[in-house]
Design a protein around this nucleic acid. Sequence first.
DNA 1: CGTCGCTTTGATCTAAATCAAGTTGAGTGG
DNA 2: CCACTCAACTTGATTTAGATCAAAGCGACG
Lengths: 229, 229
Amino acid sequence: MLTQSLTSSAVASRISPVPQGALDQFGAVTGHAGLIATEFSYRKDEEIYGEDEPAEYVYQVISGAVRSYKLLSDGRRQIGAFHLPGDVFGLESGTIHRLAAEAIIDTTVRLVKRRSLELAAGTDVKVARSLWTMTAGDLRHAEDHMLLLGRKTAMEKVATFLLEMDRRLAVAGMMALPMCRRDIGDYLGLTLETVSRALSQLQAQGVLGFSGARQIVLRNRQRLHNMDA
Amino acid sequence: MLTQSLTSSAVASRISPVPQGALDQFGAVTGHAGLIATEFSYRKDEEIYGEDEPAEYVYQVISGAVRSYKLLSDGRRQIGAFHLPGDVFGLESGTIHRLAAEAIIDTTVRLVKRRSLELAAGTDVKVARSLWTMTAGDLRHAEDHMLLLGRKTAMEKVATFLLEMDRRLAVAGMMALPMCRRDIGDYLGLTLETVSRALSQLQAQGVLGFSGARQIVLRNRQRLHNMDA
DNA sequence: CGTCGCTTTGATCTAAATCAAGTTGAGTGG
DNA sequence: CCACTCAACTTGATTTAGATCAAAGCGACG
């Protein structure tokens, strides 16, 4: 569709809420001479790539939201991460994607060929460092999430989730969750009913308020921090 | 990261022949001009580094075994990985260790200064690539482990654990586990009792045999593979 | 303004945790 | 070389957090 050769990260910085680290790095990387960045859009629930597919591209969310997940043979699903505007996803050191990715809502991404990034990394130490740093950031998230999945209670999981989303997508103290309760459950290792009950309980305690099931205002972040163990 | 001769939980003395991936890379890296590799030993249960401590060194297990873990404030523990002879651990892209590390049994490691590795990565593209690849390997393990922690049953978790350990440390069809049932539980997000019951059940089904609680022979890997979901 | 997917809430069930004894066996000292 | 000790492990009884099953609300959209 739109093919553009990005010559500076200024273009990247025009898009939406800016998580610092990753975006700067992807900006640095897509600003590299000879790298071609393309935009592409996916509709709600559309697959971006499947598990074990060749990792041809690296992606950055421009608008919308993406879930990365693994499935067991009987359909049980573990979502490893949500990707929000500014986030880079699908970066692999090897040749295949270890998780599948789907658009949660209508989503536009920027993408660059993995091969061209690796090529750039071969001559530019800064690019090589960026790739490592981005993968290390994903690892840090995964390590934190293992602790959550293995050892936190349902209420602690939900509290941690709310604080993460608040940090990543709150605007004017309010967050608009793009994902449904089932997605949240599959991220936290819970059922959708348990997620719903925990949120209702937090509302009853005055810790948060709803305006529609997916519009949440946190009214007491300190209480949530105490709960998140 | 295969085969070595950890022959019993008490005597784990010999260094393995070179396992492919990580060790080659660490070897390449420690063979780099100007890099100093030192050996150091830790006794059973001794801390190697703590969570959030400055990441001054990168380690490779020569003999013994190491657990990497995170703690919640009330002492609940999630072990993120076990490190066996040949494995590299403690590699960080940032300046601090995200998990703590302890020797499970008496352990000898080789270590190099993180700073010197980063320096080498700045001039040698191969070293830079190695660092990225090693971190990506850790990420892959963490992604698989999130699926296990969030979505597998107790029996599936134990089956997956046994197959992982079989792959990594079986010698002549037998494995000598260096870690206790509590460590296994904290790795799998279970209690030690649940781990013990699952192992007993597998023994009763003839899937495995014991010669001492930590010496295990797998008698039916296919059945374990079917169980591991 | 009716429909359908999403969410909430209630009732019940169950896998795994917790609580509680015993048993085993590796290491220690007599 | 044996017996003692203590931590590790196993096994049993009971409890419980969260899953499952079931039925309403609700709200966005055609």
